[in-house]
Design a protein around this nucleic acid. Sequence first.
DNA 1: AATAGTTTATGAGTGCACTCGGTTATGAGT
DNA 2: ACTCATAACCGAGTGCACTCATAAACTATT
Lengths: 200, 200
Amino acid sequence: MTAASQPLGRRERNKQAKLERIIAAASELFAQHGVDEVTTQQIADKADIGTGTLFLYARNKGELLLLVENATYGAALERGRAGAEAAPNVLEAALAIVRPIVECNRAHPGNGRTYLREMIFGDPREPNHGDALTIIAESEKILTAAVQRDGRFEGEDAATVARTISSVLFFSMAVGTNAPLGVEGVMKDIRRQLAIVLHR
Amino acid sequence: MTAASQPLGRRERNKQAKLERIIAAASELFAQHGVDEVTTQQIADKADIGTGTLFLYARNKGELLLLVENATYGAALERGRAGAEAAPNVLEAALAIVRPIVECNRAHPGNGRTYLREMIFGDPREPNHGDALTIIAESEKILTAAVQRDGRFEGEDAATVARTISSVLFFSMAVGTNAPLGVEGVMKDIRRQLAIVLHR
DNA sequence: AATAGTTTATGAGTGCACTCGGTTATGAGT
DNA sequence: ACTCATAACCGAGTGCACTCATAAACTATT
């Protein structure tokens, strides 16, 4: 991303720079004030671009949030993958995979739910939404591997179990009644459910 | 709702009539064109009320959708409760409970997802959202009862299993990749997961 | 039946996400 | 260097959900 990009034209470099300014501006404003309190105008101003230009880089405000946060969630996923290695059994492995995502989601209370909303209900054809779906898919792959390693579920079933774990994870993070819960509260809720799904 | 309401003043009766006109107007327009294609202005016009009046009866457009559809989902829930009686085992009982809800959700492709979105991410303090949450709670109660009847899960655990079933149901209906699936497709997806959660 | 008090109704107004026609920058071809 | 085609940019304009100051409708009281 740094060395091999020498032979790029001015056009491409400008575009890249602009994209980075947008991400930086949106990232900062979202973190500071929360998605709902920030206008696209403010983001455009801070990134020093025209109003319309912003929507050349993200089709809508939701896409903008995904653009900004996908990287964070991707990193969380990797931490989870690593954490699962050291786990003594499937339950702990699953929780190790899930925990960084929950932490990520609870980092900024309001934005976490908006991220989930966009992820689940946004337009799958948009590029950043596509990336978000890739993150879900990847997490299910990691979960599937962990379940398979345990040996109690064969091939097809392992993937199905992973899918169920995903459902439990998302629902627990998204549902309104869990909104006031912090990371530990959500983890407890997830653990209770996974203990039954994975036990016996 | 008809006979015992004689001693109501004109004011209360007017309010009731207006509410019914709003529900009728919104219901028809939503069904015909889909939530996103209908403006609040159109609904107000069709209900023959002022623009601002509409928002006296529903705080926002999402609440309006919940207001219109809650009754339908409530009825579906009752059908599910009845269907569960005849089921030979927990899996079939759970599927019998879930099926009418899925049918309801898939009745109008676009609106189903919007309903779920409002249900999960809407403001829990709004009255119609509260009703929607009651429907979720009620469905979990019915599921809990079915699980308990099976006898394999004790007290606390039965409720937890019901919660997991809820998660699977919602996620399967909401997730983008299942959007093109009809009722049977979604049911198949749910069955595959519940077979594992409830089996053994 | 006049008055005052309270609830409900109204629609012009507001703010914000997003579009679109026109403009400018870039690079390829000569 | 000059031209032309195309990609990127821009910001005034648009449409829509929602608000708010004012008005009307209703009820209670005398």
